[in-house]
């Protein structure tokens, strides 16, 4: 994928190849934390940050450490460990030096360690053979796309909760999955526009 413009890739990762709405990755925190805009945005912002940084770090780790040592098959384990360590480190730094940011992101950071979208972005970048710049664009774009999706649904769920007219069986995850389905239909419709793999 040498010839793909990073700008195009960035745009594609947000809209036409949204990692949540077209690949259905990171659904568990998405279902749980999209009850209101505030927490949805908090988690989304944390995902943007962690995804951008970990795709870049994992790109370096893969091509500078794993490939020369012929350990590509360990990529899953290594990526997970790198993500976990990175999240821990960021949490400590943020807690110490950015109390205001910690207040917004604080509890969401540890949750992200187990968010499969983060690992997914790292693995896609390897499978699709992105360069470092492309990986940066892809990581940031995917993160922003995830933020966009969860914030959209968070806003809808907040409205629905206030209207209070749902049948009992549809409350919570039920209606969220239906909304997600309709939203993803809309997003998938554009998925052929840009070829990113």
């Amino acid at each position: 994928m040498e010839n793909l413009n990073p700008g195009t890739l960035f745009f594609a990762a947000i809209f036409t190849n949204n990692i949540l709405l077209t690949n259905f990755l990171g659904l568990c925190p998405y279902l749980n934390m999209s009850r209101n805009i505030r927490s949805a945005f908090g988690l989304g912002a944390a995902v943007v940050f962690v995804m951008t940084c970990t795709t870049v770090i994992n790109h370096l780790v893969y091509y500078r450490v794993l490939v020369p040592l012929h350990l590509e098959h360990f990529q899953y384990i290594v990526f997970i460990i790198v993500i976990a360590a990175f999240v821990q480190l960021v949490e400590m730094v943020v807690e110490r030096y950015f109390p205001a940011l910690y207040f917004v992101l604080g509890i969401f950071l540890p949750l992200i360690t187990v968010n499969c979208a983060i690992l997914g972005a790292s693995l896609f970048m390897i499978i699709r053979e992105y360069t470092l710049t492309q990986s940066l664009a892809y990581g940031a774009g995917s993160g922003i796309g995830w933020l966009l999706a969860i914030t959209l649904v968070g806003a809808m769920r907040e409205k629905i909760q206030k209207s209070g007219m749902l049948p009992k069986g549809l409350e919570g995850p039920g209606i969220t999955l239906i909304i997600t389905g309709i939203l993803s239909l809309a997003f998938i419709a554009f998925s052929g526009m840009i070829q990113i793999q």
Partner: peptide, 21 residues
């Protein structure tokens, strides 16, 4: 190599914990 890199990351976190926390 995997164990070594895990140990390295754990050490890094331990040092960070000493200074940052």
């Amino acid at each position: 190599i995997i164990s070594a890199s895990t140990a390295f990351l754990a050490l890094l976190l331990e040092i960070a914990d000493r200074f940052l926390a």
